[in-house]
């Protein structure tokens, strides 16, 4: 008898997990609202990021999965799962033996990232800034990047390549000035002129429907370091296999 698995989220983690489970003989469906490749897909559309994440992009491209264009809206039960899928706005219920949650994460909001002062236009989380640039928008001219993480250096390099002027600063707290658009920011007392602020202070799990199930990948790692994401998927898979054998 083959077990049916559903994976919510078709990004890097979901697809990698699907590969691993399929090899073990499970029957796996990956449900995603978009068949776009999640965050790795986003990186592949951005210069510099494309090179930096090259290994994962290539790996993702070479993996196959049985995709279902659907939002996993609800998961019930713990022996066998009753899963509610939202397909083109229509609800459908299906039974699965296992449910995995690979819905990734989102960047901490401005408040939890230490951004205070005014809230004019021109303040973006890292994730939203990348999405907007990938969609062909220019998000400003003089960009101040606030945070401390390797990925911010990648961001800076990309912005320079795209002819933005940039400044990367770490610190505890930012105070934004400006009424309609960002005019400057104060970081721990020092003022920097800029029209755009991109902040990053860590990530949180993206699971708005509070889906129960086995979490794997960036929903646990909460990182821009895909080495950590991969490690987490492998760890979850190993543990799962061990449990199944027992």
């Amino acid at each position: 008898m083959t077990f049916r698995c559903i994976i919510a989220g078709g990004g890097y983690s979901g697809v990698l997990l699907s590969e691993l489970l399929s090899e073990e003989g499970f029957d796996v469906v990956v449900a995603d609202q978009y068949i776009r490749g999640g965050e790795i897909g986003l990186f592949s559309r951005l210069p510099v990021f494309r090179d930096y994440y090259n290994e994962f992009i290539a790996e993702y491209r070479d993996m196959g999965a049985d995709f279902l264009k659907a939002v996993v809206r609800d998961v019930e039960g713990n022996e066998r799962y009753e899963v509610t899928l939202l397909i083109n706005g229509m609800k459908r219920r299906e039974k699965f033996d296992f449910a995995f949650i690979c819905t990734g994460c989102y960047d901490k909001n401005y408040f939890l990232s230490g951004i205070y002062g005014m809230r004019p236009a021109g303040i973006f989380s890292l994730q939203n800034a990348l999405e907007l640039i990938a969609r062909g928008y220019r998000i400003g001219r003089d960009v101040l990047i606030f945070g401390e993480d390797r990925v911010l250096e990648v961001l800076e390099e990309m912005l320079v390549k795209l002819r933005y002027s940039t400044n990367l600063q770490g610190g505890d707290e930012v105070i934004v000035r400006g009424r309609e658009r960002v005019e400057s920011v104060l970081i721990d007392g020092e003022e920097f002129r800029c029209d755009t602020l991109i902040y990053y202070a860590g990530r949180e799990e993206f699971n708005p429907f509070k889906l129960p199930g086995i979490k794997a990948g960036n929903i646990n790692a909460k990182s821009y370091d895909y080495g950590n994401v991969k490690e987490d998927v492998l760890r979850v898979f190993k543990e799962f296999r061990k449990k199944c054998k027992v």
């Binding site: 004019p120 236009a121 907007l132 928008y137 400003g140 309609e180 658009r181």
Partner: peptide, 14 residues
């Protein structure tokens, strides 16, 4: 693409 006020443009097209 404005946030709220008249001059609150968020992004531009290239």
């Amino acid at each position: 693409l404005r946030k709220d006020f008249s001059g609150s443009h968020m992004v531009w097209r290239e």
